[in-house]
Amino acid sequence: MLEIPRKEIYRYLGYHGVAPSTEVEALVGRCVAHLQEVIEPRAIHAVFPLEISPDGMLSFGGMRVSSQSLLKNLDGCVEVCMMAATIGVGVDRLIRQAEVRQMSQAVIYQAAGAAAVEELCDQHNAEIAAEAQTRGLACRPRFSPGYGDFALEHQRQFLQILNASKRIGVCLSDSLLMTPSKSVTAVIGLCKENSTSTIDPGLEAEPGHACQHCGCPDCQFRA
């Protein structure tokens, strides 16, 4: 069973380290239990060699990406792992149900769903890291289309390469929204252990919280 970290749920609900009331705590507990019944965690990935052209164009898995922020993340890497994860469409129905009956629960399902899919990503990332380690490789922090200047338009090809709609049911709307809503795509750079990015030497091989590498310092959800 996927453990959904409470701390993250409260972060998404806007509690900046403030303890929730006992009523809210109880409600979150009930919602999480219910959410656990409907989620279907699924994650896939594929590893490809990375090529970086002299002008900084990134090529992996048949994708060509021009992005300074992704280049910074992947610089020094030899391979790229493309991953996609989802907790399924059940949570969307649950949110919709709660929207009709109790909006307070809808926002909790929303937050808990987001926390759940991030947790799934962390777990899947850990498996990828363990596998990479056997080959003497380490993982860079996850980086998703839409972060920095890594254009969201790459989602279409990204999901196609992973065959994500067929394998885990992750599809894309015309406006590039993923469905089910609680789905994530990300690349994970794989580098030789102890090698750092020449562009950003501070970039640790060990994945810290994704927020640390985000360019939105005044975000209300920042960890």
Partner: peptide, 14 residues
């Protein structure tokens, strides 16, 4: 003022 959070706000609304 940041002393009440979204779930509580909505529970009160309900």
């Amino acid at each position: 003022q940041g002393t009440v959070f979204l779930p509580q706000l909505l529970k009160s609304a309900e």
